[in-house]
Structure formats: C-alpha cells, structure tokens
Amino acid sequence: MSIAIVGHFLAAAIGVSLGLMGGGGSILAVPVLVYVMGVAPKAAIAMSLAIVGTVSLIGAIPHWKLGNVRLGTAFLFGSTAMLGAYLGARLASLAWMNDTLQMGLFAVTMLLAAVLMIRKSTQLSQAEMAEADTDSQSTPKRRYAWFWMAIEGMGVGVLTGLVGVGGGFAIVPALVLLGNVPIKQAAGTSLLIIALKSVTGFLGYLGQVELDWPLMASFTVAASFGTILGIYLVPFIKSRQLQIGFSCFLLLMAGFVLWENWAS
C-alpha cells in the first residue's frame, strides 16, 4: 500500500511538471512506473504515453482559455511528431529492441534533456523572454523555420514512441527559437503537441504489450490534479530556476537508470 501511495504522489508531481513547464512528465513517468510500481519497461512506456497524453490534453484546456495555444503551430509540429511517434512505437516492438537497450536509450535521452534544458535556461535570459512576449511574432527568427520545426517534430516523435518521452524539453525551445512563439504560448502549445503524438505512440504499442488499465487510470487522475496545481503555480515560480533544478534532477535519474541497467 505504501508503495502505491508513493507512486501516485510521484504521478501528481509528474502533472505539476507538465503544468509548470509544458513538458517533463513522460521523462518522469517511465522510471516511476518501472522502478516504483514494478511495471515492465515496454508496458511502462506505453502506459506513460496514455497517462501523459491525457494529462497534457487536460492541461492544454486552461492554456487555451488564456490564449496560450497556437493551433497552426501545433498542427505543423504535431503532424510530423504524430507520424514519428507511431514509427518509434513500431520500432520498439522489433525483437532486437530489448528492455535493457530501450531503458539505456531512455537514460541517454534523459541526459540529453537535462543538457538542453540547462542550455535553454542560460540562453533565454529574462530579457529575451520579455522581448519574445512583446514581439510582433510576424517573422520567424530563422529562415525556413517551418521546415526545421517539422523535422524536429519528426525526431521528437520517434523518441516519444521509442522510449516514451514527451519531448517538451525540446518542443518548448524549438517553438520559442524557431517559431518566435512567446514562452507562455510555447508551454501551452507544447501540451497540445504532446497529447497529439502520445495518441499515435500509444496506438503503436496497443496489442503489443500487456497493460495495467486500473493503474493507468489512477495515475492519470493523480497526474491531472498535479497539472491543475502546476498551472496555478506558474505566475509564482521563476522558470529559469525551475528548469535548472529539474535538469539536475534529470541528471541524477539518468545516472540511476544507467546504473540499474548496467547492474542487471
């Protein structure tokens, strides 16, 4: 019983991270399901897609009401991400993609996420964020930004299907730096993109793994409450300090996952 309580408390924390940063949920959901709840890795990845996809959609609703969701940008990034997520899930079902390799790739992705988040927090200063919030947003910061966003969407989608990460750590900075999207709108749009590609990633696993539906439902409820809390806390927490702290936590988690796979 105590393990179940801890696991659902962590599920709520996953929701808080989604609400605060527009990402970070999936990259926590998989290790919680595997190492706390004892779910097999492939099933945990599939379940995390359903959990985080549902919670992200719920979290996108208040952002939508606040005008922080760009449908056109979400469609551009999300369409290729959805295709990539399905392909990644089918790739994960191949015989040579065993649990050890898949969790090893997951740990490497966590390291990459930590590095990208630290880099983002140092590159996007408070002044740049304020400028992005008030800019005209009529011209992308980079030529052919739509093309690069579509390419990154495909890459992030493959990672989603293969190792179960939502990719908010890559989506948010891509929207800000490539699409000239203000940081608050990037977070809201990221939640919708994560929800879209989580659907196709989950469909790619459906029928390939055995799922614990009651656990998936209870985790979704706990994470949904966490997301609502996270969105409420957005005005009171500085994003730069949050990203740095979360990045350090990801580094520790990545080391733990690598150690667990090496030991086994």
Results as ranks from 00 to 15, higher is better:
Ile3Asn: 08
Ala4Phe: 10
Gly7Asp: 15
His8Arg: 11
Leu10Glu: 08
Ser17Val: 12
Gly19Lys: 05
Gly19Tyr: 12
Gly19Ser: 12
Gly22His: 10
Gly24Arg: 04
Gly25Thr: 09
Ser26Pro: 00
Leu28Val: 13
Ala29Val: 05
Val30Phe: 01
Pro31Thr: 12
Leu33Val: 08
Val34Ser: 02
Val34Ile: 11
Val36Gly: 02
Met37Ala: 13
Gly38Glu: 14
Ala40Asn: 08
Ala40Gly: 09
Ala40Ile: 04
Pro41Ser: 09
Ile45Asp: 05
Ser48Ala: 15
Ile51Cys: 08
Val52Trp: 00
Gly53Ala: 02
Val55Cys: 04
Ser56Pro: 01
Leu57Gly: 12
Pro62Leu: 11
Pro62His: 10
His63Ile: 10
His63Leu: 11
Lys65Thr: 09
Gly67Asp: 09
Ala74Cys: 13
Phe75Gly: 14
Leu76Phe: 11
Gly78Val: 10
Gly78Cys: 13
Ser79Arg: 04
Thr80Leu: 15
Ala81Cys: 04
Met82Leu: 10
Met82Tyr: 07
Met82Val: 13
Met82Ile: 14
Leu91Gln: 06
Ala95Gly: 05
Trp96Leu: 09
Thr100Arg: 08
Gln102Asn: 06
Leu105Lys: 04
Leu105Ala: 10
Phe106Ile: 01
Phe106Lys: 02
Ala107Arg: 07
Ala107Val: 07
Val108Leu: 05
Thr109Val: 13
Met110Glu: 10
Ala113Ile: 01
Leu116Gly: 01
Ile118Asp: 05
Leu124Gln: 02
Leu124Pro: 02
Gln126Trp: 07
Ala127Phe: 08
Met129Tyr: 03
Ala130Cys: 08
Ala132Arg: 13
Asp133Thr: 05
Asp133Pro: 03
Asp135Leu: 08
Pro140Tyr: 11
Lys141Asn: 15
Tyr144Ala: 15
Met149Gly: 03
Ile151Val: 15
Gly153Cys: 11
Met154Asp: 07
Gly155Lys: 03
Gly157Ser: 12
Gly157Trp: 10
Val158Leu: 14
Gly161Arg: 04
Leu162Arg: 10
Val163Met: 01
Gly164Asn: 04
Gly164Pro: 06
Gly164His: 07
Gly168Ala: 05
Phe169Gly: 02
Ala170Trp: 09
Ala170His: 08
Ile171Val: 13
Leu177Tyr: 12
Pro182Met: 12
Ile183Leu: 14
Lys184Gln: 09
Gln185Asp: 06
Gln185His: 09
Ala187Ile: 14
Leu191Gln: 05
Ile193Ser: 00
Lys197Val: 00
Phe202Gln: 00
Phe202Leu: 04
Phe202Ala: 04
Gln208Lys: 03
Gln208Tyr: 01
Val209Gly: 07
Glu210Ala: 13
Glu210Phe: 00
Asp212Pro: 00
Pro214Phe: 09
Leu215Glu: 07
Ser218Tyr: 07
Phe219Leu: 15
Phe219Ser: 09
Phe219Gly: 01
Phe219Thr: 05
Ala222Pro: 01
Ala223Gly: 02
Phe225Ser: 06
Thr227Phe: 06
Ile228Thr: 06
Ile231Tyr: 06
Tyr232Cys: 07
Tyr232Leu: 12
Val234Thr: 15
Val234His: 09
Ile237Asn: 03
Ser239Pro: 00
Ser239Ile: 04
Gln243Glu: 10
Leu250Cys: 11
Leu250Lys: 05
Met253Ala: 12
Met253Tyr: 01
Ala254Ile: 08
Gly255Asn: 14
Val257Asp: 04
Glu260Lys: 15
Asn261Glu: 14
